[in-house]
Design a protein around this nucleic acid. Structure first.
Lengths: 202, 202
DNA sequence: CGTTCTATTGATCATCTGATCAATATGTCG
DNA sequence: CGACATATTGATCAGATGATCAATAGAACG
């Protein structure tokens, strides 16, 4: 039965920056597949093919910082993706494209990361700071869309900054609900798009 | 310095149902003050003034079930409170009162419990079931208000059931954001009320 | 080749988790 | 008062967590 405890061969020696990046990438992968709460010294080490002590060695601010970094990388990547998707479109189409992408159901892992970040952020100050930063970045993106829409007369919003927060709250709330309720996919995007367009007076 | 490890006197013998209720109450208290994730065998035992083994003895479905029960009690209590607050008012006032209450900032602990429940619900099926049940109950309450408002001509909503989900998503999303962003209180209620009234065409 | 630097590791620690079980203490009933 | 039923407990287990430190191994350089 070869109950071999999966002996690991010694990891090849790497330049510190390279190893650091590999570990950060492993943390990101663990967070996406098993959740932010599963980002532990040992799980990250296993994913990176490295001894747990090495992860501790490179995690300067402790595991809290590594978790915060994994969150920032995941969400930052998603933001960049959506920003690229949205940049060329006119405001209404951009809003619809963004919502369709975010609620498509393939992003459940990212949504779960967001929800876990809000929860864990209460006990992990580094994570809380990262969450605030990413929320600000998202709000900026949405505000830009709203402002463009208002300028064009497509949207109606007295305060685009406030409207952006409202849109994000709607997106996040729907996503959180979907985590426990609708298994994976779903056409939550319709529900969501109608609500947001209602809020923006489309 | 009396580093006395706080020796506990033996807990007085109680009727099983009474003890069961006391333990459930302790779990509720721990969840409210330290979060759902802090509801552990030992923390609940300490709060109840009882040996950890006794908590395990009375937690029939394991700690998962105890956590789910604590969640259901907390959220169910809040629902009953809000339902009572809202029952006599006309729809517009009821909606405003509900939102003012929920976003008042004194409910941050309950909001945190919701967010943690969404996160933990992915690994705790009993909790996930409780979350679904409470979401349904809330949706029913909101739907009632929306329907009354539509009947009266105060609100405009093609599908009150869908509108209720949208209102809840907005409330939940705003609450989740507030957990990490705005320290405790805040006049999120204004932001929230304006958004919801916009959605309902007030 | 031999030396040096350092990336990597195994071992270990203290602490936490949920859980089980025999032993004990307490209340009740005959 | 004595015996029974059972609520309660201490001890203990296996597993997981973050973290530290001396020892090791590998590569680069003289």
């Amino acid at each position: 039965m070869s109950t071999a405890p999966a002996r690991r061969t010694r990891a090849p020696r790497r330049a510190p920056e390279e190893r650091r990046a590999a570990i950060a990438g492993a943390a990101r992968a663990v967070a996406l597949s098993d959740g932010l709460g599963a980002v532990t010294l040992r799980s990250v080490a296993a994913r990176a093919g490295v001894a747990p002590a090495l992860v501790a060695h490179y995690a300067d601010g402790g595991m809290d910082a590594l978790v915060a970094d994994a969150f920032a990388r995941i969400v930052g990547h998603e933001l960049a993706e959506v920003a690229a998707l949205v940049s060329t479109e006119d405001p209404r189409a951009a809003l619809a494209a963004m919502i369709r992408t975010l609620a498509s159901g393939e992003r459940d892992e990212v949504t779960a990361v967001w929800v876990e970040a809000w929860a864990l952020g209460r006990r992990n100050e580094a994570l809380a700071a990262a969450v605030r930063a990413q929320m600000d970045a998202w709000q900026e993106l949405v505000r830009g869309i709203v402002e463009a829409g208002v300028a064009r007369g497509d949207f109606r919003a007295a305060d685009p900054a406030e409207a952006a927060w409202q849109v994000l709250a709607m997106i996040d709330g729907t996503g959180a609900q979907g985590l426990v309720r609708w298994g994976s996919t779903a056409d939550r995007s319709d529900l969501l798009l109608r609500a947001v367009e209602g809020m923006l007076g489309v």
